[in-house]
Nucleic acid binder design. Structure first.
Lengths: 147, 147
DNA sequence: ATTCACGTTTACGTAAACGTCAATCAGCGC
DNA sequence: GCGCTGATTGACGTTTACGTAAACGTGAAT
């Protein structure tokens, strides 16, 4: 009877390593109410559910959300119970969040198009330099598209 | 000969109003090298090009980028000129940025799916309360999907 | 018994992105 | 001339999201 294979619980450094964050960050998230792992004495014991919550936190962070917004969103996962008022309020917040997500989606698509355009200009220029070195640049840097 | 209709230049408060930010923020962006408007004496005069740059800044902010990354990206728009080394370096940075954009895109799609699921649960619950009030909740809050 | 790898709390430090004054100036409307 | 509006430059304050160091606990290995 040794350690279970792909464990059901994790230490703070295990999860930290998996998600590329420090123990300090995880304790900070706990302070802010984003996580609340079980304890064995002093030591934190993270369950699979905790790991999932942390995954949601990291997703929010990659999207640039502040921690308290992330907390609000995570809380929504659990607040499908509750009073009518509460449920309606949650629906409202979901709408707002969806709006912002769709805005971000549009921003990303614009950015991707811009990246493609810039890359194209760069590659053209590089090719030109390979064919006839020492040619002064000819591509007019078109002002960025206006979206 | 009166004021030109849809102006070619803007004051700091005009642009601020248009984008929903304060003059302080715009001066801060200038400090950080994101903007460099012309001057009439002391006063800042923003051109259409400045307005476009500011638009790019705001887009970056909505995507949660730090200001110096935004600056790096904006600079890329202008650095399609330059030395070979520089051009290749720009291409590299574009790749990295594209990777992160695609990651954000995936994160957004996951989030949108989650929002939809939560909203569905909420609406179901609300409907149930309308049909037979005072029924204790029956929906098991499935743990969040693991993407 | 001691070392060592991890983990804990407490506390202070810090970088980023502004907010919030205060003092000052410049044009204009009367 | 005088007041009002809008702009400018400091300078200091604030919030967020951690980093960093200090001082201590703890179980396993030597």
């Amino acid at each position: 009877m040794t350690a279970p294979e792909s464990s059901d619980t994790f230490s703070i450094s295990e999860l930290g390593k998996e998600f590329g964050i420090t123990a300090r960050a995880m304790r900070f998230y706990e302070d802010k109410g984003l996580l609340c792992p079980a304890r064995n004495g002093q030591r934190r014991i993270y369950s699979r559910a905790d790991r999932t919550r942390l995954k949601l936190v990291m997703r929010g962070r990659r999207l640039g959300w502040p921690l308290d917004e992330i907390r609000a969103v995570i809380d929504m996962y659990d607040t499908s119970e509750g009073e009518l008022k509460q449920l309606e309020y949650t629906c409202e917040k979901i709408s707002e969040r969806r709006e912002r997500l769709l805005q971000q989606q549009r921003d990303i698509e614009s950015s991707l198009r811009d990246m493609q355009e810039i890359e194209q200009r760069c590659r053209n220029r590089i090719e030109q330099m390979n064919i006839k070195p020492n040619t002064p640049a000819s591509s007019k840097p078109e002002p960025a598209r206006d979206e």
